[in-house]
Design a protein around this nucleic acid. Sequence first.
DNA 1: AATACAATAT
DNA 2: TATATTGTAT
Length: 304
Amino acid sequence: MREEDSNWFAKWEDELPSPDELIPLSQSLITTDLALAFDIRNPHQIAVAPLPSQFPQSTANSSAEFDSTELGGGGEGGSGGGSGAGDEPARTLKRPRLVWTPQLHKRFVDAVAHLGIKNAVPKTIMQLMSVDGLTRENVASHLQKYRLYLKRMQGISSNGGGVGVNNSPAALAAVSVDPATDHLFASSPVPAHFLHPSRPNSDHFLPFLPVAAMQNHHQMAVVGPGAHHHQLQQQFRHFGTSPPNGQFEHPFMRQSQQQVQRTGTPVHIRNGSSVVPLPCVEDLESATATNGRKVLTLFPNGDD
DNA sequence: AATACAATAT
DNA sequence: TATATTGTAT
């Protein structure tokens, strides 16, 4: 019996399609509409470019990158020429729904945490997150829901009875009536001060860092060594919902030219204002139970 | 004008 | 349900 299984597996493995066979498939995944949505003139290039030099075992979806292709991000104004007549389909057409992955949500929470509730408004959050392609509307929508979530949490935590401050995410999540509903939100710990709205003016957090200083230094080296070649961080957006017509999942890279984000590498800053993108905190495995440890301590002020 | 926010739509 | 879009106030 075991032998059969082994045989079966070997055979199965042997007959797996080679990468060359898989690549063309990814091309077909990019529909014309999709290409238009990203203002991509020749879809062919995308099909060729996508392969990251080293992709993990891409299970089903291909993790594609848009090389230096002009996406919505980057040089917004397009080439200096102005090309006035320009029709920008990307701006007109509807973009696919953003899927808030735990990673993305984590960045969101971190951003909100470091802004403080007061300053945590969509635009600012968006800037802090500095995720390419992320729109203010995206954040606004998410923020709206997140606030509702926080509200529920507050209610629950206050109701708990005088057990000190047991606001551990796990506990709160446990109390939550619909775990499934809050799955995403529960995946990321809620900073304590979120639950204490009645905290008198505590100027704990410094809103922003003086960007100018940092820009001088190129990038703020959060993590020196920089030799960490870790995995690809997945802050992708998936184009879920594939009706018969079929829009498939589509990986979405952040920051134009950066190929992969290394641990703690803070990407480019393109803000005219004073918002410093959060460093990339790579979380360990899925933050699951048993690990009551705080992982959020990579920021310069490390105030949390 | 821009944008935050809540309500509503998909 | 999750996210988008719309409407309104600031």
